[in-house]
Design a protein around this nucleic acid. Structure first.
Lengths: 243, 243
DNA sequence: CATGATCAGATCCTATAGGGACGCCTCAGG
DNA sequence: CCTGAGGCGTCCCTATAGGATCTGATCATG
């Protein structure tokens, strides 16, 4: 127990910049922020599997903090839908998607993301275009192997592309709406049973969306994004018929 | 200080059903739930004004609980965008919308709500239709006076209508996406400077949406909702030109 | 008068204590 | 062998203590 050894640990955060990289005037973090990021990373890269219990006390011991910041971090996470809480029983990682859940998720993406693409197109500039091109380049060059660890970069580039488009709408509400979906999409990619069975097509679709955006025609961008998401849905539905 | 008088209060929750109405097997609540609802109600009905500080300790004293559940409730609320947190400085009620924020909000609503209407229409049934009709009836019969208190019911019926349509999509993600916007819409109705200057038109538009839904034509429902939101935007923009 | 240091109170943040509920394991009895 | 009661540990939940930090006022100085 390291905790017992150093008596009062309260507020002893002067030497704890939480390892933020390249911190330019890092807005000071509190422990709950650190715990939140740690849990989120565990959820997004598969270390925490659906259905697993997330014990408050256990997480606190693991991260060597007290339960109070862990409670705060979990309260924030609950709102993302990635963990669920049952009063007096604790938190669990949200269960795996059913086929219906996935259909719902795609329905929601179809409502939001094409609009994002249209607005992002209208507000595009060279710098932003370069950012988007980078993610597509990353997607193409990411290694794709059979195990999860081997296509982690691929999934991250995929997510990054969609997230960037949301940010480029300059609309905080659309960013928020996409963020709520993006985490779920990523989790489904990991646990939904569908691998990257058809990465070539997916890459081609991303390229099409990028081309449509750079063409400057918002309608084309909207249509390209809608087509992409529909294709994603079709591929996933075909991969995991389940019945 | 009531707290000092009853010694340990921990776990003394057997006699605290938190007053949930018509509790059918009320899933047990914890204090954080109660605090959350209390704060949310204060935000939604205007008792907490934009920019006001929400002190953790102060709220705890006011509600006669310890700061721990208050921290948890505020962590959840932060994710709704209605309060903002600055590390080591505390929480504040999110500031009043600017004209640009409002435009963004309407842009986001235009992406989501027409789709909600289309899907709700496809999944409509007599019971659901009756629910919708009730909210329109409430809207028509709600008193509308000059002061806030006098059109509180009007605003609630308005919000209820849109929320019901979101729920009737049977899509948890769209419900969540709308919920994130609905709170902001309601807050803008209270503090955005626009009153109910043109309630007759707004009521007529709700009726149009309802008619389109009951016609059974999803495309008509989608169009009616889009038209309604655009009109709302136009009215608000005209009311508060600001420049 | 303007400006900057100093101090006190309020507030945030984290750790810790302790009560109640639940699950598991053990063990005695049928 | 099977079953049920009791003990024990774990976990959730809330309260409280106390260090760290911020804010606003006071006061001294240029």
């Amino acid at each position: 127990m390291q905790k017992a050894s150093n008596g009062t640990r309260a507020g002893s955060r002067p030497e704890d910049p939480t390892g933020r990289k390249a911190g330019r005037t890092v807005s000071r973090q509190v422990l709950a922020d650190h715990v939140y990021e740690e849990l989120l990373a565990s959820l997004m890269d598969g270390r925490l599997e659906p259905g697993a219990a997330v014990s408050i006390d256990g997480t606190a011991r693991e991260l060597d903090v007290s339960p109070t910041p862990v409670r705060e971090a979990l309260a924030r996470l609950e709102h993302t839908g990635m963990v669920r809480r049952v009063a007096l029983k604790g938190y669990r990682v949200a269960p795996v998607f059913t086929r219906e859940d996935f259909a719902d998720l795609m329905e929601a993406r179809l409502a939001i993301e094409p609009v994002n693409a249209r607005l992002a197109c209208a507000r595009l500039n060279p710098h932003r275009l370069a950012e988007l091109e980078q993610t597509v380049t990353d997607l193409k060059s990411a290694p794709r192997g059979p195990s999860f660890a081997e296509y982690k970069d691929y999934l991250e580039a995929d997510e990054q592309f969609h997230q960037l488009i949301a940010q480029q709408t300059d609309n905080q509400f659309l960013v928020g709406a996409y963020a709520a979906l993006g985490g779920q999409v990523q989790r489904f990619r990991l646990f939904g049973g569908v691998g990257i069975t058809d990465a070539e097509n997916a890459i081609a679709e991303h390229q099409s969306v990028l081309d449509a955006l750079s063409s400057g025609d918002p309608e084309k961008a909207e249509a390209a994004m809608a087509a992409h998401i529909q294709k994603v849905r079709e591929r996933a539905m075909a991969d995991a018929p389940e019945e």
